[in-house]
Write a protein that binds this DNA or RNA. Structure first.
Lengths: 193, 193
DNA sequence: GCAGCATCTTGCCAAATGACAAGAAATAAA
DNA sequence: TTTATTTCTTGTCATTTGGCAAGATGCTGC
């Protein structure tokens, strides 16, 4: 594995020049995460700003009764980290788990700050990552409020079909805010059409 | 109106020294927003990074059928702006409206970037604002998925009681992801206890 | 292969919520 | 004040969703 994909990803934001992208990528370390392994464990401080090069992951938290709720799915070509824990150095309330064998490139909080300090272009990139994460979440929130479970399901199927190959339906159900039973019924209804 | 509150707010983050806080606040412009007026209008580019000094506001979007959905309530002492529109210079999908007569202090995107460029402490502050916004939204999303409408209502009542003085119940209902009819019934149920 | 476990579906019933419409109450406007 | 408008509540009924339990299917490890 080399760092071409990360360089390309940095460049594609139009915020980082090729030269700088190479310099940034040079600071990242390789990491392999086998299927089912936790990349980030609840109650620990997230210290890896990870570019997911290959594979799929999910983030999940526990609700007040202790059951798992999948809060996010991560696909290859995305930055994967727990924003709050990473930047505020607080214990994560979430776990991040590999749904498939994964490969990625990461830097620590300290390394990221050094890069932020010396490379304004990387700062811009970092901001863009945060803003995109925020915008995605906001879009999902609006969707959650205004659309039915069936519409949310069909939308996910359309926008993120790969996930259905790798994540069990109960993960997808909790991500959509319903039980696996309801999801099963919704799938049945859709088949009828 | 002077800028004491903003200086205090900047300092309270523990990211900005008093001296720098004064320097930063000096760049902000005063703004008054009468009750019901839009501070940000849909389809325009948000260009005001606003510290809300007095009053209460709400953000709202339109769903696919065109009905209003309240996406956020803003209280005095918070930064108020539409993250995606402001940082990406894109048309806002949201409106921000004064629920009461409001007073605030703002800078433009260009002014903010100049400050970011010259004052690392303000960059840290800016990052913290983004991270907090993200964390809040994530908490609400989890709450939305795992708690019942009644629990969400009672939680809002506990954590943000002032809003009930200023926002009509239909705004609160859509914020909670239910209809005003359902909210009315939930309130009735709670009275019985 | 076989046992054991997780996943997915289905049936039954209760509870929560929505859609629609009408009426009461509060607020704003004339 | 009177009128008009918005807000809030209530009633009726249909739909969605959940809780629970049982069965079917599929995967994993021995």
């Amino acid at each position: 594995m080399n760092k071409e994909n990360l360089v390309r990803f940095l460049q594609n934001t139009s915020l980082v020049s090729f030269h700088t992208a190479v310099k940034i990528a040079g600071q990242f370390h390789e990491k392999v995460i086998p299927k089912n392994q936790l990349h980030l464990e609840e109650d620990k401080i997230c210290n890896e700003y990870l570019f997911l090069e290959k594979g799929y992951m999910r983030a999940f938290a526990h609700d007040t009764e202790g059951s798992e709720v999948t809060t996010n799915f991560c696909s290859q070509g995305q930055m994967v980290f727990e924003v709050n824990s990473f930047f505020n150095r607080t214990r994560s309330k979430e776990n991040i788990q590999a749904l498939t064998d994964c490969e990625g490139l990461y830097i620590s909080f300290e390394e990221l700050n050094n890069l932020f300090h010396t490379l304004p272009e990387f700062r811009e990139f970092g901001r863009a990552v945060l803003v995109k994460g925020y915008a995605d979440l906001k879009g999902r929130m609006l969707y959650m409020i205004t659309e039915t479970a069936e519409e949310r399901y069909e939308n996910l199927l359309k926008t993120n079909p790969q996930i259905f190959q790798f994540a069990p339906l109960k993960n997808i159900a909790s991500y959509l805010g319903i039980t696996d039973t309801s999801l099963s019924r919704i799938r049945k209804e859709i088949l009828k059409k």
